[in-house]
Design a protein around this nucleic acid. Sequence first.
RNA 1: GUGGCCAUAGCUCAGUUGGUUAGAGCACCAGAUUGUGGUUCUGGGGGUCGUGGGUUCGAACCCCAUUGGCCACCCCA
Length: 458
Amino acid sequence: MAKVNVSIPQGTRDFGPETVRKRNFIFNTIREIFEQYGFQPLETPAMENLDTLMGKYGEEGDKLIFKILNNGLNDPKNIEKAKKAFQNLLSGKNDKDLTERALKYDLTIPFARYVAMHHGQLVFPFKRYQMQPVWRADRPQKGRYREFYQCDADIVGSNTLLNERELVHIYHAVFSQLGIHEYALKINSRKILAALAAICGGEEKLTDITVAIDKLDKVGPEKVREELSQKGLNEKQLAILSGYLAISGSNAEILSGLSALLGQTVAGKEGIQELSYLLDSTKTTPALRIMIDPTLARGLNYYTGIILEAKAPETVKMGSIGGGGRYDDLTGLFGVPGIPGVGISFGVDRIYDVMEELGLFPETVNVGTRVLFFNLGEAESEMSFNIMQALRYKKIACEIFHETAKMDKQFKYAEKKNIPYAAIIGARELAEKNITLKNLHTGKQETLTTESLLIYSF
RNA sequence: GUGGCCAUAGCUCAGUUGGUUAGAGCACCAGAUUGUGGUUCUGGGGGUCGUGGGUUCGAACCCCAUUGGCCACCCCA
């Protein structure tokens, strides 16, 4: 057999039929719940203007944006411009003469861009969901791909915490329905982190502080202190920080700890109130357990209020399978201030990996064709085909074996394709004008008339 | 962007200190079986050992380069 010599780009994947069915199971579940909660679908282009994306995800984020090379650079009249632009690029600056478009990095910023462009026509609060691929120029590793899907639900144009409350319920509904019961939903508030920054180092240290404490569970408190010491925090400030990091226990204990440390500041007080509200609001749904995690920070710097993150069950070592939070003024970045919002995201590819590892996909996910009509001869297959068409008309997925072959072969085909029923029409059935229907799962078979086959419940 | 591990049949892998014609299981095809699959038995096809170079009488094995994959750091879904 000839050796194929083709490949696909690093970090991308083909999805075979079985995988697509499983992925669709996840997509369908999420979509159904988004719709149940009153969200409307939206799609935006794969690429955006580079300007739209740059500077929205932090310094690291900018590096991970896939840029698209402009066309026509080799046109003689562009060559000089292109050379100059390339020099610019080498010194770390982007240049429109070389690249002005990029693949989208997430769904939130393109959504903000959309809202900014269409705010005049939208009904607020605008609740949209979006399920599309995004691209990141990251090195692939476990649970990390260069092309992956996000499923986002955002509400813009509304300030009330009822929105956060709904989003928390969406997380719970989706994970429950997918069978991922051991997930952890962690919440925190940027206001609390801002209050912390204010009393230890100043507000301009907010990003440094959030980045450092976000690593706490990985590197331990000592390293966090070290890192922040290098960022210029003094002993007294580090002591406050240590006090903050030591806050743990039940949600109530954490709240009182936070209250003692930050309750005097305006931001701290607000953050604590918001977390309390969200916690209280879930008490009527005991299965929905949220945990306050003071060390939850989240990388994206546009968040301003409640932030949340869904973690995969500990055993699978996948980390975050979803995240989100409130932002006060995302559209302000695009010249339309005053539209606050809050949203969440599901990482489908990681959810898939988690479900695969835990064996959570139902067996029925991979049933496509319900009935295989056997092909046992010319006249036989003629009768099969006609009955099959009638069944298809009744919305039952069927296929007929592509050629006359031994039953053995046709059974094996059905088995491999996970087809639950075989409709056998051979010489005998042809003469008696009936159909042998075999359930391949139980091995039982029965003789049916055409009429009874057409109303059979498969 | 930095570092570690790996690459042998369609898939999962074995292959001794470098030594004749590179193996196994699964999968595939055919037969045992002319109307009954999943189990079994028999036979068969399939490999430029990721790619390029080097060392050697001789390389899947050693060396260099390159590409790809996995994993970790950074960061993140």
